[in-house]
Write a protein that binds this DNA or RNA. Structure first.
Lengths: 200, 200
DNA sequence: CGTGTTTTAGATCGAACGATATAAAACACA
DNA sequence: TGTGTTTTATATCGTTCGATCTAAAACACG
């Protein structure tokens, strides 16, 4: 019983994601956002509240469609070792295609926004915790079915895999290089043991 | 043959480092900087040029006294394996004491500033490249004297160690936890092989 | 076809931004 | 003790910031 929205909220959020992703939170102005979202400043404030609330919406939307979503699709569908490797290889390829050096919005926000905003910090910590937990479950599953060596605790292997993921995301914003990324991954995969567990 | 400086440039730069380190580049205003540096805006611009030039000076000064300096002091003085472990353990302890979640200025700048400013990107890439090169030299030296297993190429081990360093620095800004940091390190050190190479 | 409600567009708010102009103050050198 | 030069302090400069006001436009409902 009122005038309807003239813009697609999802598309507008995608445009906001693009802005925050590329330039960061502080360097993105509300005028930048409104222009890229194809709406006026008044509509932006009417629909989303303020800049910070819009950022939270953008961060949440990005999170739902990022690595966490890929993990949900892979886990249980492919063997654990392959799931781990696929997640990290996809991030490597994405980072090498990322000529604008956007990196990952969650991890960019981890450094720029999270330390000063408790709710963003919680959201970022939650996402990274889920990734670490996935790695841990996958390693444990691989150890259970014999495809991953049980000499290391799955928690520690998962932490190294998380470090590799974070390392790739950081270097993607500075100097994306295939050999660097694949070297990080190769050594981490060594922690899983030989690919085919040679029986005797 | 003129009026002398009334402020200590080094101390002023330290104050500027503190500002950029804690709040980041964009969120730090020139007025914040001048106040913390104990000088007026006019003196700041007269002495340093503009905000970006001051940031570069601060980043350079920080870099000279950070991990790179510690590496220079350790390398050649202690066994390679111990040098690697000391560097990373120091970063872990520093991160756990870092209640303000400042992390590392170089890596914070890697995400916020480097993608958009070629000269900062070059400076950051140079610093991280030096750290990776140190890890590589240390692993190679350890392999040469038999204290590090030669089954992995030193380049790849160095890349994983760099990823662990970056991972610690990222998580230090979000959620510093000893078990996470030490788990990253433990698994990376596994790549070096057993501490005492058991003969037969 | 009014009435009520929300969204739109455009103008603009006060505050803060990076940076500068001006002139007095503090030195080196003659 | 003048002269030249740099640094200092104060008061801004014009711009942009995040956010809001006003009123017209667009719908649902009666």
């Amino acid at each position: 019983m009122a005038r309807p929205r003239e813009f697609d909220e999802a598309a507008a959020l995608d445009a906001a994601i693009e802005c925050f992703w590329t330039r960061g939170y502080e360097a993105t102005s509300v005028r930048d956002l409104a222009e890229r979202m194809g709406i006026t400043g008044a509509s932006l404030y009417n629909a989303f509240g303020d800049k910070h609330a819009l950022f939270r919406r953008a961060l949440d939307r990005y999170s739902e469609r990022g690595t966490t979503a890929r993990i949900a699709r892979l886990e249980g569908q492919v063997p654990p070792r392959q799931a781990i490797e696929t997640v990290l290889r996809d991030i490597i390829e994405e980072s090498l295609r990322d000529t604008a050096r956007k990196g990952c919005l969650v991890i960019n926000s981890a450094l720029e926004v999270a330390p000063h905003e408790p709710d963003c910090r919680q959201a970022v910590a939650d996402r990274l915790g889920r990734i670490e937990a996935f790695f841990c479950r996958a390693v444990a599953a691989g150890q259970a079915d014999g495809t991953i060596t049980p000499v290391l605790p799955p928690e520690d292997v998962a932490r190294n895999l998380l470090a590799v993921l974070l390392g790739i995301r950081v270097m993607a914003r500075v100097q994306p290089e295939r050999e660097l990324f694949e070297g990080m991954l190769r050594s981490a995969l060594t922690l899983l043991g030989p690919v085919t567990p040679a029986a005797g």
